[in-house]
């Protein structure tokens, strides 16, 4: 993978800038992104893989492959799935160090706080935290 996390963030910012300030298009675009995400195998949709969100269910599972973190996730709502797909696009198959060292500036830049709102952002923040915790766990595992 040649692109850095920040390269991809800039790419996302560019894509969203095409939508302008239009809430409707933004939401439809996010849902479209969600629709494109491959569904998670049913066996991973367990109680322990659930990330507590506000109104939607999110399942997250990971694996460490060749020193890199592989994220797989799903949600029962398309919007949430779309938001997760952005995180996965940034962080999937990155080293724990890259993930932990990254600053997610794209969230503010694409006006996502406006879309996800203060209530829903709790679920989104929980998702980011959980992904970082996995990365942290893997880093410790790799250091041993």
């Amino acid at each position: 993978m040649n692109q850095t996390i920040n390269d991809i963030q800039d790419e996302i910012i560019d894509e969203f800038s095409l939508l302008g300030d239009d809430m409707e298009s933004t939401i439809f675009y996010i849902m479209e992104l969600g629709g494109k995400m491959p569904p998670l195998e049913e066996k991973y949709k367990t109680e322990e893989n659930i990330v507590k969100g506000c109104q939607s269910k999110v399942w997250l599972t990971t694996a460490l492959e060749d020193g890199k973190v592989h994220f797989m996730a799903d949600s029962n709502t398309d919007i949430t799935k779309g938001l997760i797909s952005l995180l996965i696009r940034l962080w999937d198959r990155r080293t724990p160090g890259e993930i932990l060292g990254s600053d997610l500036y794209f969230i503010d830049r694409i006006g996502m706080n406006r879309v996800i709102g203060s209530q829903r952002s709790n679920g989104f923040a929980a998702m980011i935290k959980k992904m970082k915790l996995y990365a942290l766990g893997y880093r410790q595992q790799l250091e041993k």
């Binding site: 409707e24 933004t26 939401i27 849902m31 109104q55 709502t77 919007i79 949430t80």
Partner: peptide
């Protein structure tokens, strides 16, 4: 999902609860 519909309606100026 009600979450998705609620968000889409909000984008059209409609406030409902989900």
């Amino acid at each position: 999902h009600h979450f998705d519909l609620g968000m889409m309606l909000d984008a059209k100026g409609i406030a409902i609860r989900t």
